Simulated scan of single mutants.
Amino acid sequence: MTEHETPRRLLSDDELAALSRPPRAEFALALDNSPTAAVEVLRRIDRSYRNFIDGFGTWITVTWAFVAERYGAEGLARVGSADDGYRSALLHGLTDEDVIGRLRTDRADRIARLIDQGDHQAALAHYDDLEAGYRRIHDVERDRVASVLSQVYRAWGADVLMDSIRFAGEQTLLGWMPQDRARPPEVRVRQWAAMQKGNFTDITVEETDDAFVITLHPCGTCGRQVSDGCYGQTMDLAVVTEDHPLTFGQGPVPIYRAHVAVMHHWVPMERIGVPWPVIQCPAGMEAEPCRVVLYKDPDTLPDELPDWSG
C-alpha cells in the first residue's frame, strides 16, 4: 500500500452496527423482516447461549481430570465443595424450570412455531423467558468454574492453578486456535462477536485500518462477577494477588480472569509468537470495559504487550 492509498475496510458501518446489536434486538428486528430470518436468528442465538454454558461444564470436568491425574481422590476431595454453587444459585435466582430447561431442546422449537403462526408478540415473550433462563444458568455455571479454580488455587497455589488452566485450554479452546487464525478477518470478527454476545455482555464492534476491536461493557464473566459481588461480598471466589505470570505482576486479579493470561497470552506466545487474540482486561478488581483485538493479519505483534519479569 502506498502512502496515499486509503486502507480498505472490510465491513460497512451498518454491518458493524449489526454485529454490535444485542441478541434480543436482533431477534425483534428479524421478526419484522421475515419468519425465515427470525427463525434463523433464533437458532443462532439459542446455539450461542448453549455453547457457552456447555463450555463451562466441560471446563469444570477437565479441571477435575487434571486434579485427579495429579493428586488422586484425595485431591478431588479438596476441590469438591459445592458451597459457592449453592450461593450462586441463590444470588442469581435459579429456578427449577431453568435447571430442567437446560436439558430440553424444544423451547426454541416452540418459539419457532409461534413465529410460523405469525404470533410475534407471544414469540417475543417466550424469547424473553428463554434468554432470562439461559442467563441464570450461564451465571451459575460461570461461578462454578470460578469456584473450582478458587479451590485449586487455595489448595496448591498459583503455579498449579496455571498448570490446570493450561491443561484445560489444551483440551478445549486452544484446539480451535489454528482454525480460527486461518479464517478471513471479516469471518473471525463475526464469530467472536457472536461468542461475546453468548456471554451476556453488551458489545461495540469497531474497525480500524489493521484490526477489529470488540469492546465489552463489561465482559459477562469476571466483569459481571465483580459487579455482582462474587469476590468477597455475596460469594467468596478467590483473588490472585501475588506477582505471577497469571497477573503479569499487576495483581490483584479475579480468579476467572487468570485464564486470559494462560489461554490467550502465554500459551499462544509459546506456540505462535503472538497472543490469540489480544485481550485487554481492566486493571485490578474493576468491572470496567475490556477489549478483544482481532488483527486483520493474525501474526501482528502489538506494540505493547503484558510483561512479567518474575
Rank of each mutant, 00 (worst) to 15 (best):
V240D: 00
S20L: 02
V274S: 07
R183M: 14
V41M: 14
V267L: 05
A211G: 03
L130P: 01
L149M: 12
T6I: 12
I203S: 00
E26N: 11
W308C: 05
D243C: 08
S12R: 08
R8P: 01
P252Y: 08
E186D: 14
L216R: 14
F167L: 01
D209H: 10
P298G: 04
R70P: 00
T247F: 03
L94A: 01
R43C: 08
I45P: 00
P184Y: 05
Y127D: 00
A238M: 02
L19G: 06
A122W: 00
W156N: 01
P245I: 00
A123N: 03
H126Q: 08
A25E: 15
R44T: 09
V267T: 12
H138K: 09
T61Q: 10
D106W: 12
G118R: 09
G198W: 03
A112H: 05
P282K: 10
W64R: 13
L161V: 13
M235A: 07
G80P: 02
Y86K: 01
E3D: 13
I272A: 06
H217E: 11
G310Q: 04
A194R: 09
D84A: 15
S12Q: 04
A158F: 01
E26W: 15
V187K: 07
E69K: 12
Q171Y: 10
I203W: 11
V148C: 03
H259I: 05
D54F: 14
L294D: 04
G284S: 06
Q225G: 13
W156F: 07
G55C: 04
Q250G: 11
W276F: 09
V152S: 05
G229R: 14
S81I: 06
T215N: 09
L294P: 02
R9G: 07
D180I: 13
T204I: 04
L301F: 09
Q121A: 09
Y134N: 08
V213R: 15
V79G: 05
V292G: 02
L305Y: 15
I115Q: 05
E286D: 12
D109P: 02
V292S: 08
P7L: 03
E3C: 13
L19P: 03
V253N: 09
G57L: 10
Y49F: 14
M1H: 13
R104S: 14
R190E: 08
V140S: 05
H126V: 05
G101L: 06
D159K: 09
T63A: 08
M269Q: 06
E5Y: 08
I279R: 15
A123W: 03
V145M: 02
G72N: 12
E40F: 11
C219W: 03
G169N: 02
H4T: 15
D139G: 06
A158Y: 00
P268M: 00
S309T: 15
H126G: 01
P185C: 13
D98H: 14
Y134A: 13
T204K: 15
